[in-house]
Structure formats: C-alpha cells, structure tokens
Design a protein around this nucleic acid. Sequence first.
RNA 1: CGGGGAGUGGCGCAGUGGUAGCGCACCUGCUUUGGGGGCAGGCGGUCGCGGGUUCAAAUCCCGCCUCCCCGACCA
Length: 468
Amino acid sequence: MAKSVLTPQSEDFPRWYQDVVAKAELAENGPVRGTMVIRPYGYAIWERLQRELDDRIKAAGAKNAYFPLFIPESYLHKEAEHVEGFSPEVAVVTHAGGEDLAEPVIIRPTSETVINVYFSKWLQSYRELPLLLNQWCNVVRWELRPRLFLRTTEFLWQEGHTCHASLDDARAYALRILADVYEATMVDVMAMPVLTGLKPDSEKFAGAANSWTCEGMMGDGKALQMGTSHLLGQNFARAFETTFLTETGETEYAWQTSWGVSTRLIGALIMGHGDDGGLRVPPVLAPNQVVVLVVRAEDGAGDAAAKIAAELAGSGLRVELDDRVDTSFGRRAVEWELKGVPVRVEVGPRDLKDGQAVVVRRDRAEKEPVALAGLAAHVGALLDDIQAGLLAAATRRRDEHTVDAATLDEARDGSADGFARVPWDAVREHEGDLGDGGLSIRCLQRADGSVPLSVDEPDLVAYLARAY
RNA sequence: CGGGGAGUGGCGCAGUGGUAGCGCACCUGCUUUGGGGGCAGGCGGUCGCGGGUUCAAAUCCCGCCUCCCCGACCA
C-alpha cells in the first residue's frame, strides 16, 4: 500500500473522515455555512444509491411526485409536536420580490405538512387507499454543527408519504419500507449490517406515533442513524383534515406513514468501510466497479487495455479506462485506491507479453496476475467475493463491538467503543441520565432481534451507543 | 449558545515594525513511467474587513466579520 496520504484512522478518526472526503474528491464545503458541494464522484455514488433505493421504493408500490420547496409558514404550525420539533432549525424567507412577504415562507425541512394539504384535496374514498407517494428532493435544516454528508444545512434525500385505511395497514407499510427498501439496500448494496428497531419516545420523529430506524456502526464504534420509517398515526391527518369515506360511509382520518434516507448514507459508506487507504466502495454500489489502468502505453499496451476495458464492460461491469499515461502510474494507482474502486486491472507491456494482466483487489490490497482469456469471469467472481467480504467484515466488527450489559452503568462502559445491549426495563427510567458524551438509546428490539411495535412490549432490549 | 483554535498564492504553512517567503499543486522543456519519480525554468498574493499609532504595519492598538474543532439539537 502507498505511504499514508491520509491521517490514519487510529490517530484521529474525524480528521481521517475529512481527509477521505477531500482526497477522494467526494465533496467540499459550500460558501454558506453548512452547505455542501457534492463533486462528481460523490454524486455518482449518490446516483447509484438513488437508483437502488428508487427501484425498491417502486417495487413497494410507491410512485414518485414532486412538491414545492417553499411552504407557507402557517402549515408548520398545524401539528403541535411537529412545529415544536422543527421550528428551531427552519429557514424562513421573509423578503422577496423587493418587498416583505405578507406571510413568511419556510424552506421545507420535510414535507409532511404541504403534502397533507394535497392529500386532503385528493383523497375521498377508501377505494383510493393506500395512497403511496415518494419524492426525491432537497431539504434545509439549520443545524448547529454541520459535517459533510452527515449533517449539512441542505441535504438531498427521498421522503415517502403514504395514506392507509387502517392503523395496521399503515404500520405494516412503514415496516415494509424499513425492511424491504432500507435494510435491503444497506445490506445488499452498501454491504453494511444494520440494527433495525424502534426508537424510544425521546428519539421519535416530531409528530410521529412510532419511529423505526436502521442503525449502522461506524469504524470508530459510533452509531449512525442511516434511515427512519415513521408511523404517523392520524396526527397529521387530524391537523390537515385528511379524511376519506369508509366502506360503511363514515368519515375517517387517514392513517399515515413517512420515511426517508439521505446523502448521509454516503457518510455511512465512508465510515463503515473506509480504511487508511481511503474509501472502499462495495461492488454492487460502486459507480466504477473496475478501473483498467494503462501502466505504460508501450508495445501496444494502450490498445490492449482499451480492448480489455471494452470486454469487461461488455460483460456487464461498470468499467473506467485510465489511460492518462502522462501521469505517473503510482499517482494514478493511489488515486483509485482513495476512491475505493473495488478492482483494478493493470495492463503493461511486461504482463501483456505473457498474456496476463495484474488484478488488484481494493478490499485486501492483494495483487495477482490473471490470464487475459478468462479475465471477465475472474473479475466478476472477484467482485462477488469483495461484496460478501465487506459485509462479513463489517458484521464481524459490529458483533465484536457489541456487549451485553445488565445495568445503565455497565452499558455506559460497554458502549465506549461500540454498542451495549441492555434490558429496556433497566434503562427506561434513566434516559435523562445518559446525557453527556453523545450516549443515547439507538433503538429497541425484541429478544429475538425482531422489530417491536411499541415501547411497552415486555422484555425488550435497548441498544446504547455514542452516536453521530 | 459555552469552550478551544485559525484567517498570508489553488491547498498546507512560516514570517515580533524595514523590499512577502517555503512545501505541495499548476504551466513549459528534457528525462522518466510496474506504487504519489528527477532536473531546469516559470505563473500566481492590495497578508479577512474597517479604523488608528508610526517615517514605515502581515507584524502594534481598537472595532467588526468569517471559518474550523469539541459539546447541547438533528436525516
């Protein structure tokens, strides 16, 4: 591996994170505090995530739509808990078109309110249910301490909003999204194991009846909330008069859900798989699964590399050809390593003479010569192996850094560099004492690891961790 | 908002009153290219902003602004 171009993780993890974001050319700060410029490579990863999520969202029956960025301020005030939760971080436009606005306009921090106004117009009959919408957009939350990808003032996300005829149906849908869209994408695409569970009331979405979450463990043992799915009950429906006529002709408030994941997932990817050499992108997710490097363009190596790249692309892989031979080989190798491209195929005159190319896997920094004849099949199998290996390694690390505890004090010690699993009853009354050090209850699970429907179910276990 | 730190070429930094510098990056040429090569030449800065002291201010004084890091809030 190359000499260290990044601050080592063990020396200063936050610094390492910033180094990766910069050196892998993922993003940088925007001119306004907390804003983010997402660079092409970072955006390519986001586009891949969008694609994988969008396919699953649609498979779950939701359709995409788009609602406005600007929302009348009065909408925010219609749901009591919602306004209390979001007011402090909402950006408000009071002046436009050269004069003060009659009613200030907020920039959406989330869209439950405006979408409910339209739900209430559209929804009339139980026959129209469930009503399943999703939108891809940007939202703004004036956060106190921004951090690229993890917590930016403006961020990109998808937000799903649905109406159902019954509580059971709404709840089942919120849980379906949690499992079939979020957990599936995180595990199968991002190769990141997540704990799925119920949020305690203190961590619930403002205005929700229940919030469920996917919690990932980062390389430093801290937790990151990677996605949430909420059961809104009838809270917003009541506030916005979102009603429908039932089969028996009665007026009933819609049962609703909302759910979202954001560009924070890129932060999770960095901190979940990154190492001292930079990012490591799982093959299923990677914008570039393979990069074919021309070591030097002599003796037909340039043409051979182009041909190899075309063949790999022809076998269905996402391939990049790096023929910038005016830049030194070492520099380019380091560059791709920083960007975490899963497999590199190095083509130079030396190996070409023997009908070979050098294949390097990013996850373990291992090199081997491979015959050109079977290259595509070899690389395909290698990518599968890397995908599985990254998930296995992340799962192992997560499990090794998860301890059982009986009391809050034990849990506090145990969560110093990971998760502590403790009986919910042992900490339930002491949530206020967690306080310092960023320690919090990440989620609740049943003893068998399944997802609870209520914080009042018996024998629940709580996962405690320091969190981002 | 509390606690720390910093504003000087694109990036990272040095510079305690006397002609604004270094490393990296960038450009040109030659040479090199199998893990961030070498040599030579070159481009690039009204030193965060406003005032003040002084013959003279990046440097001293006053005021302001911004950014970063650590906490409280959060996808």
